[in-house]
Design a protein around this nucleic acid. Structure first.
Lengths: 340, 340
DNA sequence: CTGAAAGCGCTAACAT
DNA sequence: ATGTTAGCGCTTTCAG
């Protein structure tokens, strides 16, 4: 057991070759000031001649830093992985991290065992901070990480009383705006296809739907609300049921654009014209919506800003021991793509 | 600069608390034999009382191992990330790795800078091995890793003369089978929508298509071949053009199921009946195909086995310095889902 | 079966 | 400006 890394040169050998001390070499490879440039050049030459690469474990042990952050996804969200929202978040986080010289490690947690293993991984100092994607209401991981003193930032919150630092979109406001928009066009029989209701994000969007109805003085009909799970299939199934129960349906608020796509499919299969007969608004980022239906109106989340903000907060917490939890809620935007 | 990890207990403190030497604690946490069970228990107690977690950098420095492997994806494939094939590969690799206690690190390479950074990352000893997904023909990374003496396994090969160890599906045979199947049902105007032709995998599938035609004595019409890029959109566009140029088209071989899905969309939009008028066979794994069209015939790749095999080969190379490149080509399977 | 001691390769504080 | 030295926390002989 154990790999045979052949004769990797060490800093010591570089020093010998360059005819300087180890400290000097260390300064050079870390771009520390206070080294005569001729010396610096000599060291650089030795480095490249020997093909020297600093040993990470040794440095990490000395500086007590890993220069890496983990972006963690739960198994439960795995099928969402393919969703544009997630890949866009990954991309945004990657971009934001690129300047800081940190390695981004995507990590999958698919079982209790893996959660435990990741915890040890993180507590063992292999990452300096953790970014958690889309946590479920009862997920204990954030607290465990917090207790371990690891800088942690959540994408979304678990409940309204979330403590751990998080970045979230304004789901409530976005949903309210979307449904108000439907109401403004005179529609009155508006359904909601929600996300999994054990996720706060889904609860918020549903609440926004209800608030908009209430505000407009429209009766909230329970059978117009169907719980989905953000997938396209759930949108299709939910919509099929809704059409049957409420033939007069004229508006749909979907908790994700994928769900919206499913709903559209079902509507068209049932011969409904979209958006003339029924207008659908999906809540999510725009790339998928555009692909599915160029004219679908959506609630767009500021994906890029979410990623940037998560990284910024994480870096702040890594710099100084967090003395308070910070929460950032980013505004969403209603993107109208049709004329109806 | 640097995070303040508060008072993490060290092995030394555990030893003190348990009233034993450091060596003994080390043996216990590594499940090494030769420790009296009463001693073992005492140590275990001390460990849990102190909430001790071994410091990874220190261990890694001592054993010269990282207990982690990287699964890297290139930016160029990033949009394929959402494809079932990729997420299935990730899952399969994760499963295969789970037993070995290695951490799986998904890594994204999106630029020359990031490639360089990853190379240092890997050469710095932060991973023990590297799994590379879907390499382009001119990608130098595999060779760089090989030169650095890092165990590396490719998913697919760059050219027919690939040296570095790889696992691949039998793209040539699979394509041949698919097209032969179309020919067997009497179809004669068969189009091919390929993947990016700078990828060997796409070249192979195209070659399979041609070989099947030749074998059946059917003329190979250049305008029936369109280069796509594995995406749905490319399938749609390619198909639209094909229908126009070849109204009599009655068969399509698509280089991926996503492309096939796009082709189906275009065909239906053009009023063609599928599979009665035109039959489409997509080359790829099954989940997406099933979702898109439950009756689509596909060439299924043994995704699970691919993942398992990659991990197995990697582990072997990690165990003993590879003295030869190993290549494994896994059989594909034609999955018929319609009666046509 | 267990303790003591010698590194692993690097950084950083201290000399010079 | 540069060399020297003392750790960082763990594994692993080597004694006992």
């Amino acid at each position: 057991m154990g790999r045979q890394r052949p004769d990797v040169p060490t800093l010591e050998e570089v020093a010998a070759r360059a005819g300087v001390g180890r400290g000097t070499v260390s300064r050079v490879i870390n771009n520390a000031p206070g080294v005569r440039s001729s010396t610096r050049d000599a060291v650089r030459r030795a480095v490249s001649e020997l093909g020297y690469v600093p040993n990470f474990a040794a440095r990490s042990l000395a500086v007590r830093r890993a220069d890496a952050v983990a972006l963690v996804m739960m198994e439960s969200d795995w099928r969402l992985f393919g969703e544009p929202f997630f890949s866009e978040i990954v991309r945004a986080v990657g971009n934001a991290l690129t300047d800081s010289g940190m390695q981004l490690l995507l990590t999958l947690i698919r079982s209790e065992t893996e959660r435990q293993r990741f915890l040890e991984y993180a507590r063992g100092g292999r990452v300096d901070g953790v970014l958690l994607m889309s946590v479920r209401a009862q997920d204990p991981l954030p607290d465990m990480l917090a207790e371990a003193g690891l800088p942690t930032v959540l994408l979304g919150r678990r409940t309204g009383e979330e403590c751990v630092t998080y970045v979230d979109a304004d789901n409530l406001g976005g949903a309210r705006t979307a449904v108000s928009h439907l109401l403004d066009s005179g529609r009155r029989t508006i359904a909601a296809i929600t996300g999994p209701l054990d996720m706060y994000v889904a609860q918020c969007r549903l609440r926004g739907y209800r608030e908009a109805l209430t505000h407009a003085g429209v009766q909230d009909v329970p059978s117009l609300v169907v719980e989905g799970d953000f997938t396209e299939e759930s949108g299709r199934l939910a919509m099929a049921g809704l059409i049957e129960r409420h033939p007069g349906i004229d508006g749909v608020f979907a908790a994700s654009d994928t769900t919206a796509a499913g709903a559209l499919t079902a509507l068209r299969a049932a011969g409904r014209r979209v958006p003339d007969d029924v207008k659908v608004i999906g809540f999510d980022d725009f790339p998928l919506a555009e692909r599915t239906d160029p004219k679908l109106t959506t609630v767009r989340q500021p994906v890029d800003e979410i990623g940037r903000t998560m990284v910024r907060l994480l870096e702040e917490e890594m710099r100084e021991p967090a003395t308070a939890w910070r929460h950032v809620i980013l505004r969403t935007e209603l993107v109208l793509r049709d004329s109806a």
